[in-house]
């Protein structure tokens, strides 16, 4: 599904390149649950953003379902990730001005899904996540765990093949975190590919494979 070859990314500071990612090679197959670990500044989030096509890289090749991402224009890339990828963030990143219902609906609007179809899909997922009663509330009226639930619902609404999660439990207490991780596991069992970035050994263990990053390189895999 994902094939990264010799991916490097750097910023130039004072004339010298400062590597954020250096010669990263990785392959992710469909149905995997991959955890990326590493200390602060090791390039975990950048790698995730590169995979999610939100960030660009300076060198290397990236194939997504055999399509050459590194040769694409921004518009093609965004069409690609719109179709296949859902994002979950540490800080949830819900739009404060929209209700729970509207937040979940947003990706469908951008994919030109018809209104009646949207209604059915959103109702479906609200039901599945047990948050039907919260649909008219605004994000600020929810607890962190509930907000992340909405975040995941929003990531799933367009039925993506891949979920990218950047420290999804980072802002949650342990009980809420556990619930979210169980949800991820369940999703993975249903066939959704998941890549998560995490600090916590315990959460990383939910994954079937762990990549350790240090200073922009893959230090080891387990």
């Amino acid at each position: 599904m994902i094939e990264l070859k010799h991916i490097s990314k750097w910023v130039t500071i004072g004339g010298k390149p400062n590597f954020i990612l250096k010669d990263v090679n990785a392959t992710v197959n469909e149905g995997e649950f991959l955890s990326i670990m590493g200390p602060s500044g090791s390039g975990k989030s950048t790698l995730l953003n590169v995979i999610g096509m939100l960030d660009e890289f300076n060198e290397g090749e990236y194939r997504f379902f055999h399509e050459e991402v590194h040769k694409m224009k921004e518009k093609q890339r965004s069409n690609l990730y719109k179709q296949y990828i859902g994002f979950v963030f540490q800080a949830y990143h819900l739009i404060d001005e929209l209700t729970v219902y509207e937040n979940i609906e947003t990706p469908l609007i951008y994919q030109d899904v018809k209104s009646s179809e949207r209604k059915a899909m959103v109702a479906d997922i609200l039901d599945r996540f047990n948050i039907v009663g919260k649909k008219d509330l605004f994000p600020t009226q929810l607890s962190g765990g509930q907000q992340q639930l909405v975040g995941i619902a929003r990531a799933l609404i367009a039925r993506p093949k891949l979920i990218l999660a950047d420290e999804p439990t980072g802002n949650l207490n342990s009980k809420q975190g556990e619930e979210i991780m169980n949800l991820f596991k369940q999703l993975n069992d249903e066939g959704v590919t998941i890549i998560q970035v995490t600090h916590s050994e315990k959460n990383a263990a939910y994954g079937k494979r762990i990549i350790h990053l240090l200073d922009g390189r893959i230090e080891r895999e387990e």
Binding site: S78, H93, I95, D96, E97, T106, Y110
Partner: peptide
């Protein structure tokens, strides 16, 4: 900016 960022990640194009 946050809202704009999220909308972009959700698939909004620049034009939209």
């Amino acid at each position: 900016s946050k809202e704009v960022g999220i909308r972009k990640v959700m698939g909004s194009s620049r034009t939209q």
